[in-house]
Nucleic acid binder design. Sequence first.
DNA 1: CGACTCCTTTGGATCGTTCCAGTCAGCGTA
DNA 2: TACGCTGACTGGAACGATCCAAAGGAGTCG
Lengths: 348, 348
Amino acid sequence: MGRMPERVPGRLPGSPPTLADVAERAGVSRQTVSNAVNNAELLRPDTLERVRAAIAELGYLPNRAARNLRTRSSHLLGLRISPHLEGTAEATMDRFVHSLVEASRGAGYHVLLFDAVDRTDPLAGYDDLLRATAVDAFVVTDTYLGNPQAGLLDERGAPFVAFGRPWDDPGAPHPWVDVDGAAGTRLATDHLLDRGHERIAWIGWRKDSTIGEDRRSGWSSGLRDRGLPTSGLASRVEDTVASGREASAVLLDEARPTAFVCASDTLAIGVLHTLADRGLSAGRDVAVVGFDDSQAAQLVLPGLTSVRQPLEQVAVEVVRALEGVMTHQPRPEPGLLLVPTLSVRGSS
Amino acid sequence: MGRMPERVPGRLPGSPPTLADVAERAGVSRQTVSNAVNNAELLRPDTLERVRAAIAELGYLPNRAARNLRTRSSHLLGLRISPHLEGTAEATMDRFVHSLVEASRGAGYHVLLFDAVDRTDPLAGYDDLLRATAVDAFVVTDTYLGNPQAGLLDERGAPFVAFGRPWDDPGAPHPWVDVDGAAGTRLATDHLLDRGHERIAWIGWRKDSTIGEDRRSGWSSGLRDRGLPTSGLASRVEDTVASGREASAVLLDEARPTAFVCASDTLAIGVLHTLADRGLSAGRDVAVVGFDDSQAAQLVLPGLTSVRQPLEQVAVEVVRALEGVMTHQPRPEPGLLLVPTLSVRGSS
DNA sequence: CGACTCCTTTGGATCGTTCCAGTCAGCGTA
DNA sequence: TACGCTGACTGGAACGATCCAAAGGAGTCG
């Protein structure tokens, strides 16, 4: 001992302490400090305490870059955010981001946000981060567009978990977590049936939207199971307030429903507008249920009953699945389907 | 040449190529490849092309961890997200996050999200990331609570830029970017005055909210400058729909205003509810203006006119300021105040 | 023709951590 | 006493990039 640590003279006083600083202070080797941090059970109790004291005194925290380099992992999860989602999907995504950050922290990960330089390239951003080993894994959320991402990432051996089912390839091997939309609309439909409604209309998206058709099926199965008709009671339109408004006006004229189930809050708010136009009371005269439980659903006048996705739970399961992927644990099932709940408000 | 690269045999075929791989392929030294990436002007044109070809063939991208370790910088910006903000502030924050990710990318940075383990500690999360040199700088957004962060981060020499003024210490030296709330409400007030309104009411937050008082001042100065009265026309309440509804009912009864300017969309929607209760038409009978231009403002029935914060511009300026901070460039002014715009819709 | 530039390129050291092989002391057993 | 064995700790090498000083080559000039 007594050897001068060579690098100290040149160090700025403000720069954080290193493993070597702690080692010198505790009178042990660097490796022993490393073990104190990562494998405490390898140390004798008294040594451990001495090292821990030195760590506390100096306020030492391992340098991330050095650790990342050595262990070939960054403890970062990449999440690509779409520049601007349409309608209420944006709010859903934001609620998910919050939940994901929280769930990731519990597992020792941080969330790295990135966006697509070139929106036409499905792998834009992903590929660069992967090759630069800047993230350990991805959370893929933009799967609803006919996700080429999943397949492409799988090909490159990139670890990831998708929030959203592989609609176009139900047998896809990659792990995913999703919310059962049909169960949500079924919940909504049963809720309305329980309130005595028998003529319940559907306003959803165009037929080429698989998510839209899934949500629709919850409505139709709910009516069919009670022997009630669905024909003439469904409409498929764009996801805008104006479309919901028009579609509901037509349905009211032609099919006289007493309740509406909608594929989104945006459409449901369109229905509320139609009711207001006609002097009908939402909730009393005609019931309305939306989907997403957006902020707007809480703010509009009678309060909009809406299907709420369990995003906190989705985030937790996504992180759990990611841990499995990164440790190469085999999974019994690639997918996990969670059940939404219903936020009941004045509109029903 | 001809020397076998020692490390190749042990490398997994899937692991990304390194500087050494590129160097060997191009027949140059590692340093030359490094220069080709970072200081292209140092290379002779033909060498540069050869190296670039090798980089392209191998799909090389510098390893982030190694670069971070050597250069002592991570090219990451830390952003702490609050677990759950109240009301429409959450939507504002999310729009800002999107803009920040985009602006950061332009400057070669990514955004790292984190949240507070312990919400009572103002530096929770910040300190750890700083000591672990996990981020280069922070974007501090939660300054409206009487920001102890700014001072504490300044003390530790942490580079950061705040979105939000240092209300409690106007002379604070740290850089910040903010939106001029008073200018926004002034814009709203002038807009209503131009439409012929003379009795314009204010519904804002409690007096201890500095932001609320700032926004209020735009309304009061607008009226004073035209010699119109403000007394009896202002109300200060909680930021909820119910409060806005009650406050507007009282004001309508006692002061008979023909227009309302509100400190938030949440309050403005409360006003809309009161108008609907009384069979008054928003826009025709009574005009209403909100603040934040939230999604709900676009969805509610006549459309809510609202003050829109230029968050894209804020993000760009925050990143610009951060670049200045990190290169230790002196700043003429610590702060920058941006002017909002007005999104005019049916409610006015 | 040798000395002196200047420009390009190179090898070694380094950032701070973890992996790996090995040292050393202490203890039980023959 | 000699031997092996185990547990606690150590020193050197490695991860993959950049910084630094110095080497090599081409061109200029006395």
